[in-house]
Structure formats: structure tokens, C-alpha cells
Design a protein around this nucleic acid. Structure first.
Lengths: 350, 350
DNA sequence: TTTTTTTACGCAAACGTTCCCGATAACGAT
DNA sequence: ATCGTTATCGGGAACGTTTGCGTAAAAAAA
């Protein structure tokens, strides 16, 4: 069932020379005569020699692969991030090993353990919604594993980070709703553990404050599993709708929450934006095709992936330990749809 | 920048015994005394020993990793397949390396070369839309690399396959449109190279034939890049709309084509299903939220991934060469939306 | 007691590669 | 003739692990 790969030994044997010579010839060392080099190169060609990356990894003590931990691939934002990661890694000859936490802390730990046992050279991670304690990451980091965090970060680890300007995004989305005349703006957010939750809610609150709206705690609902469990969103929406002061707009803080919220509203027969407006973070390509076309905050996902990977490779390939860390903050983009247009205005559009 | 991992040598040195003893103790060999075993185990524990998988791979000549080649991760169908693949691989201790062809033949070749040089133990692949010649795959297969194909397969390679019942799916979708009263049903399909194209169009034609509709060649448009190039879809739609006998329904044969087609129609201000009906293959979770809610053919993606992985691991772990190959055919599911409901019926629904 | 068996461990090779040290030969300089 | 250079190559250790074989001591059988 196994096919025998051709090694430098085979070339050496075929040519009657030593493996060291073959190795050096292939690496174009100066101490090999041009003739021998050519001989080796030709022989390697005809035998279809491929260097064994595993032997190389063992020798050089690096695997030329990086680990990626995200909560879900089947999520527009993360799959776009991965595209960014891949594009850079591929160019630099690095292998990308992707694993999903499925928003589970336990699973994240397993992934991390798995990746480190696979001896990846570095790690890109966006924390799971359940993750509160990051001592497992700390441990890896202190052992010297280069780590770059993106999107859902933690400042308990001193390293490079790449995030969207969550505060600004949420601020602008809320401001947008206010300017459109909405008065009672609710928020459905992720787990309180997550950095994005804190930052986005802060932007939301700040916008309310700036425009003289007062913050209502009952208007903010948290979905611990970030929408992985659908009933969570249903419950959040239900609670908002049973308030005496029913909100007239909702802002959601992540992809899954946004589409999940819309799904709940649609299934309950609540009209958007006539009954309630909706604006949310989402990187779905289908936002404009939804009913109604959604006003979304789109993160520069691909770019985030690229940036994070560049920073990681920089960390990996640096000779001396790096102590100055960078936090890149990219701007999200507010893309207008119809889900945030109050009824009178809507007539004008249609 | 590198952290020194603890090896069996360290344990051996610490305990004053040989590495072979340590190795055997860790593997719970019968020829090691219980006391020594305990000693080694304890020592490994305190030193936080982790076996080096690279050294193991080199020794055992297997990497315990499988390669996956799909055209795009950011595609509901494929990300769901990957979830299925991952779930099985993870259980069996296999690593999954994902790479994307982005529907490019050249890129697929590079991916394959990369994966094989990475010495994966097996390969799961769904061909790119450009792929016409599969001699590169043949070569790998003949060298003994276990391969399982899924979704977009080729019967030029004798191996396990996992596919949806494309014929039946397309037949049922077309039948559905016919029964709803549509008379002029067009199809927007993928590259003619792809197995799914042939099979799905065959189902489409068969349904037309069964119900006495005659097949019109002008009603079938191919998108060579399967919707990766958006203009392709626009062009296909435009051509259909310039026909003297304008079609009253469209069936699309893949996820990207389905949503791309809807996007084109929406942007052109064409109403669905009032002006034209739409049914397509899609695994998007958002189908029901679209405007209009889409009637889709949903493939059992997760299950396909799981099945394919099981078959692959079976191939990999088999002692003797396998000559009997299996082709698993799973049923897609027709999920009704509003995009395939003629106008009068639509009144009733609303 | 002697012989055999069992128990418990070590030595060393192997996986494919790189690279530090030599080693050899040719050649010019002394 | 001797020496130092230079060019070109090979030997062998090393990366971390497993494993076949050998062997000492201990236990069991004779």
C-alpha cells in the first residue's frame, strides 16, 4: 500500500557517489564541481526525486506549517480570513493546518494540544466564545511558540494582534440607526468573555451616549454560544419583544447572530424593517440578496488574514526574540441595505 | 526563538536508563517491568514529554495526515463537507490539510504537488471546474497514494467515490418546475468537464423528456468558471433573456451559480418568481432568508465528507491492496421556497 | 548444583536529510 | 622535494523515535 519514494541515497547509488555530495549538489553548494552537479540534477530529474519534507523537518526542527484555530469554517468571515492566511502562507512555502473549535473551550484546548503536538511553527487563533481562561495558550506562548491573535483576542498575552475597529464599527452602525430615527435600539451580542463583545458594545453605548439616548440594560442580550445554538437567539429575540418598551431596532455583533436573528424574525413573521430594524456584523456575500437586503458591517476579513499571517511569519523567522508587539486595527465598512430604513423612507426607495 | 522540546533522551538521561527502555515503557511493552514503567511514566509526566510526531512520521513512513482539495472553502457545500471530513479524521487521529484550487487547474496541480510532497497518507478531492486532464492525479494514484473522490469525480481513476444523486436531484427539480406549470425551463450549468454537470443536465433533460417538453439547446448555458467570475453568470442570464422565446424558469447546478444567478436577476430588477422562476443546487443556510426564499436542492454535504473520509481511511489502513471500489450515492433533498411558485399560487401563499 | 527459561534491559540500526570534519589529489610556489 | 592552496568529494554524526537482536541477571526447572 506504500509506494517507495526515491531518496538521495538512490541517486548516490545510481551515480556511485556519496549522499553528502548529492545533498550538496542539490543545494547548489560551491564545493561541488559543475559536472557533478549536472549529473546529480539530471539523475534527480529522471528518477523524479522529491525531497522528503518530514526528514527535513526533523533535521531543521521546524515543520514549515502553521496552525489556525477558528470557531467555524462554515462562516463567511472566517473562511475569508482563511483565504487571506492561505494566500500568504502559500507564497512563503508554509503549510496551513486548520482546526475548528466549534465555539467550545474544550475543543479549542484539544485543537491547541493537537497542533502543538504536530509541532507547528506558529499559531493563528481567534478565541472561542466559551474561552475565558487562556492559560493553555499562555503556556504554549511561554514555551516559545509564536502566536498571533486575530478578531477575538486577549490582551493577557503579549503578542501581535489583528482586529477590526470594533468600537468604531458598532459606533457607526448605532449612529446610523439613530440618524435614521430609531429611538429604542437593542443589541444582541456574543459571550461577555470575548474582546469583540466588549468593544462592540462599547461603541454601541458610546453612540447612544453621544446622541443623548440613554442606555438600557434590558436592551442588551448575550448569546453565550454566539448563535451556534439557535434557540439562544430565539430566546434573546423573544425577551426583547416581551419588554413593555419594545425596541425598534436591533444591532447584532457577529455573522451568525445577524443571520440567526433575521431567521428568527422571519420565522416569527416579524417584518424587517417595518416592525424592527436590523443592522449587524456580517461578511456574507448574500447580504444584499436577503429579505430585506441587510445593512451590514463588513470586516476586511481577507486582509486581516493576510496581515496576521505576515506578522506571524515575521515572528517565526526572526532571529532574535521580538519584544515590541503590534496591534493592527482595520476599519470595517458599513454597507447600507434596506433593513435599517424606517417605513416612510422605505416607501421612497421602492 | 525555538523552544527545546523534551525527548525520550532526556527521560533516559534523567533516569539513567536507555532510550529503548523509555520508548518501550511509554508504549507499554511487556518486556519492561512495572516499576520501570511507572518511573518512566512519572518522569515523562513531570518533564511534560510530548512525542515528536515528525520523528514518528519519518520512522513509520506515514504522516497521519490526509490532504483535501476543494475549489473554495468559502462555499457552504464545501465547508460542510470539510466539517464531515474533519469529524471523522479527528476521531481517528488524522490531521487534515485543506487546500483550495480556486477552480484553477494549475492551482489544483500545485496543491496536489504540494500535498504529495508533504507526504500525506491519502487524498480527498473534488475536481476544479477547469480540470479536464487528470493525468497528474493518475500518476499519484499509480504510485500508490490512496485517493477518494467526491462530488466532482472522474471515472478515469479506479477508486472509491462519494457523490450526490445528481441525476435524480436535477430530475426532481425540473419535474417540480414542470408540475408548477413552467414551460420554458433553462439551465445554467458548470463547465462541461465536470461530472456533476453531465449528470445534472442529464436529469434535467430526462425530466423534460418524460413530461413531453422538448429540449432546447439554447436554454442551456455553461459557466466555465462556475461562477467564480461573476460576469460569466451575468452573460449567461443576459443571453437567456435576449432569446425570442424567453425562458420562464432557470435551474442552476451549483451553489455559486445559484446565488450568483439570483444576484444577477436582482441587480437587473428581474422579479423572481414573477418574471422568472429559480431552482438551484445550494447548501446555503440562508436560502430561506433570501428574497424570495429559494427552492433549493440541498446535498447531504456533511455526510458526504464523513463517508469519503471513512472510505479513505479504510484504503489507507488496509493491509492488502483493495481492488473492489465503492461508489456511494447520497440523495439530495428538494427544499421548497417561493422562487419556484408561479404568480397565481404566490398570491395564495402571501 | 547445573541447566534452562524468563525477565528486563541495552546496543545499534534505521527512517531521509544536512553539515561538520576530514581526506585526497592536483597544482603552483617555494 | 616540500609545502600551502584549492577544488572536490566522502565519512559519519545528528535530528527523535522504534525495534530486532543480544545479553545479563534472576527465577525456575532439572
Amino acid at each position: 500500500m506504500k509506494f517507495e519514494a526515491v531518496t538521495i541515497k538512490d541517486i548516490a547509488k545510481a551515480l556511485g557517489i556519496s549522499t553528502s555530495t548529492v545533498s550538496r549538489a542539490l543545494r547548489d553548494s560551491y564545493e561541488i564541481s559543475p559536472e557533478t552537479k549536472q549529473l546529480v540534477l539530471d539523475c534527480a530529474e529522471t528518477l523524479n526525486y522529491r525531497p522528503n519534507p518530514i526528514a527535513l523537518s526533523l533535521k531543521e526542527r521546524r515543520s514549515r506549517s502553521i496552525g489556525v484555530v477558528v470557531c467555524e469554517i462554515a462562516n463567511s468571515f472566517f473562511s475569508q480570513v482563511i483565504n487571506g492566511i492561505e494566500s500568504i502562507a502559500y507564497d512563503k512555502g508554509y503549510n496551513v493546518i486548520i482546526s475548528q473549535s466549534h465555539e467550545s473551550y474544550e475543543r479549542e484546548m484539544m485543537d491547541l494540544h493537537y497542533l502543538s503536538s504536530r509541532s507547528v511553527d506558529g499559531l493563528l487563533i481567534s478565541l472561542s466564545t466559551e474561552t475565558n481562561d487562556i492559560s493553555h495558550l499562555q503556556a504554549l506562548h511561554q514555551k516559545g511558540l509564536p502566536i498571533v491573535m486575530f478578531d477575538r483576542i486577549s490582551d493577557e498575552i503579549q503578542t501581535h494582534c489583528v482586529v477590526a475597529d470594533n468600537f468604531k464599527g458598532a459606533y457607526e452602525a448605532t449612529e446610523h440607526l439613530i440618524q435614521r430615527g430609531y429611538k429604542k435600539i437593542a443589541a444582541i451580542a456574543n459571550s461577555e468573555f470575548l474582546s469583540i463583545t466588549t468593544e462592540r458594545l462599547a461603541g454601541y453605548k458610546e453612540a447612544l451616549h453621544t446622541y443623548g439616548h440613554k442606555y438600557n440594560n434590558a436592551y442588551v442580550k448575550h448569546c453565550f454560544y454566539g448563535g451556534m445554538v439557535f434557540s439562544e437567539i430565539e430566546e434573546a429575540v423573544n425577551k426583547l419583544f416581551t419588554l413593555k418598551q419594545r425596541p425598534d431596532a436591533i444591532i447584532t455583533t457577529s455573522d451568525k447572530l445577524t443571520t440567526g436573528c433575521l431567521k428568527t424574525l422571519v420565522r416569527r413573521g416579524i417584518r424587517v424593517p417595518e416592525d424592527i430594524a436590523l443592522v449587524g456584523f456580517s461578511n456574507s456575500d448574500l447580504a444584499e440578496l436577503l429579505n430585506p437586503p441587510l445593512t451590514v458591517l463588513r470586516q476586511p476579513a481577507m486582509e486581516m488574514g493576510r496581515d496576521a499571517t505576515e506578522l506571524l511569519l515575521q515572528l517565526i523567522e526572526s532571529k532574535r526574540p521580538i519584544t515590541q508587539f503590534e496591534k493592527r486595527v482595520l476599519s470595517p465598512e458599513l454597507i447600507l441595505g434596506h433593513s435599517s430604513v424606517p417605513q416612510p423612507d422605505l416607501q421612497l426607495i421602492k
